[in-house]
Simulated scan of single mutants.
Amino acid sequence: MTPTIGSAERAGQEADSAQESGAPSPPTLRVVKVLELLSRHAGERLSLARIVREAGLSRATAHAVLAQLTAEGWAVRDAEGNYGIGLRLLTVARRAEAAFPLRHLASAHLRALSDEVGVPVFLAERAGENIVVTEVIGHPSASWIRPGRRLPLAPPVCREFIAWAPDSARAAWLATADPAHRDRLTRVLAEIRTRGYSVERLVDDSTPMLEVLAGLRDSPITAALRAQLGSVITELITIDYLPDELGPDNAVVTLAAPVRDHHGTVIAAVVACPDNHLSAHALAALGAKTVATADRITAASH
């Protein structure tokens, strides 16, 4: 049936509404799965059977996606029928890297920090109202920490990006937080400014549950469900450490220090990922080294 002008307009409005509400697009997700799989094995050629298995697609769907990607130059197919990334994907990847020049400048500093402290490290850069993971050194235990992962600049996370912001920006950020946590967040932001870094910790043994919930929140779901998941995640998080809460054994998942531009605005964060129990002394030592690395990256970028 051919839609009338009115029905076509309504269909477009419904599509826009679905997109705004976070409704998933299964065909897009299938293409993304295949591209991510090929990019993770950039030096290899993958069989159709392996792509079907690892991407979780039917053989017919995987074949259709790969045929289109190959026709457009996003993938290549060799004489044995195996697939790899195409030049068009490489071209787009290079263009994307140009949007995050700090990644290249920071890479050697991040590696030096990781080698010194013996834990994984990553760089998170601000992109509008989001934070993007752009460089990862080592293998963080949290599965969400990978290049390209985008997180909203929303309470209670990303505090190191907000702690040094103008009063109006901090107030706006705090206004979006759970009202029950605003007083604590206000004190935490002040403490971060004093010591120079944020600390992420978890209540008891909730790490596995938190990772599952975070993965669901970052998947294509409705805005309402995402908000509900965010509330559950918030309940599992004890927001940072205040000075009188530090003891002989402190559960530390990540520790993040700010990188600033020449105006002093926080544009990125160096994040160390011990995911371990540290003494107060060890925590302070890791914090000092992470801050020093972030400061070196700041200086090198000016």
Rank of each mutant, 00 (worst) to 15 (best):
Y83V: 04
R226V: 04
A99C: 07
H277P: 01
V133H: 00
R201I: 03
A268P: 00
A272H: 05
T186H: 09
R30E: 15
R146Q: 14
P26T: 14
P101Y: 03
V117I: 15
Q68A: 09
V252K: 05
R45E: 00
Y197S: 00
T238H: 07
A169S: 02
R149D: 04
V253L: 12
G6A: 15
R195I: 05
P243G: 07
A288C: 07
R170D: 00
A268G: 03
D16P: 01
G264T: 09
V252G: 02
L102E: 01
A175F: 06
V92C: 08
L174Q: 02
A106W: 02
A257G: 00
H263L: 12
Y241R: 07
Y241P: 01
D218F: 07
D178E: 09
E36G: 03
E9W: 13
A93H: 11
R126H: 07
G73Q: 08
F122T: 01
E54T: 06
P258K: 04
S47Y: 08
V132M: 05
V76F: 04
V291W: 03
S206Y: 04
L105I: 15
T290E: 08
R260A: 02
A96K: 11
L210C: 07
L66Q: 01
A280N: 10
A171R: 13
F122H: 15
A15D: 09
L57G: 00
S58H: 11
I85V: 15
A23V: 10
G86R: 13
V291N: 02
T265S: 12
V199T: 03
V31C: 06
T222C: 06
